[in-house]
Design a protein around this nucleic acid. Structure first.
Length: 228
DNA sequence: TGCGTCACGGTTGAG
DNA sequence: GTCTCAACCGTGACG
């Protein structure tokens, strides 16, 4: 198989004259946003951001058809390390979704026991205020003044946080899934958004329709919607 | 030549 | 509103 037009020979180290280091990038795509970059295979990517879902789908789809990772890499112009990583993850988790980027680990503001009680209180009385829950925790002896949920701000806000984590999550996930469906194309940070459709591999590469498998691949709920 | 792995610079978002 | 920091990202190079 011949290399794609514009493809830089693989495994070529940058010479001193080339202005990029081990992880520097040789080219930037001229866009209003100035975020797109071109890898050695001629593919466009945004440094630090996940590949668009349609590329990820395509990688998995081609692998399903028995196409070797190196071929997938060249066809889609995605580094083989990335192809390898995505396929490994797909095998392990069954999901093509990128992991949740950013954020901190949720801080343990209350013991599991206290969280459970807060959950019970809220379930029994959905209209209950955080300060009421705090008072009830004290009153019921679930915790004393030193162990009642307390964060940097206040114990009430800590309880609110517990409530958000317990009761506000489902809606958020639904919202994420919804965003994921159209967010990919709408967002100005997507490669699609930057390049329009000209950068889409389906348009430049012959191959099986991406639509068929799109329906078969299960998309899991994920806090990270990929392209925003 | 193909692939697994890792360092790197970058982005993101909760706290 | 701003900062910090730890999570993740894809690339590119090594073996």
């Amino acid at each position: 198989m011949s290399s794609l037009p514009g493809t830089v020979p693989r495994m070529m180290r940058p010479t001193p004259g080339q202005n990029y280091s081990r992880s520097g990038f040789p080219l930037e795509v001229s866009t209003p946003l100035g975020q797109g970059r071109v890898n050695q295979l001629g593919g466009v990517f945004i440094n630090g951001r996940p590949l668009p879902n349609h590329i990820r789908h395509k990688i998995v789809e081609m692998a399903h058809h028995g196409i070797r990772p190196c071929v997938i890499s060249r066809q889609l112009r995605v580094s083989h390390g990335c192809v390898s990583k995505i396929l490994c993850r797909y095998q392990e988790t069954g999901s093509i979704r990128p992991g949740a980027i950013g954020g901190s680990k949720p801080r343990q503001v209350a013991t599991p026991d206290v969280e459970k009680r807060v959950e019970e209180y809220k379930r029994d009385n959905p209209g209950m205020f955080s300060w009421e829950i705090r008072d009830k925790l004290l009153k019921d002896g679930v915790c004393d003044r030193s162990t009642v949920p307390s964060g940097e701000a206040s114990s009430v806000s800590s309880i609110s946080r517990v409530l958000r984590a317990r009761f506000g999550k489902k809606d958020d996930e639904d919202e994420c899934d919804k965003k994921d469906e159209d967010g990919e194309k709408k967002t100005k940070h997507s490669i699609d958004g930057i390049l329009g459709d000209k950068g889409r591999p389906e348009d430049t590469q012959p191959g099986p329709s991406s639509g068929s498998l799109f329906c078969r691949i299960e998309i899991e709920g994920d806090p990270n919607v990929g392209w925003r």
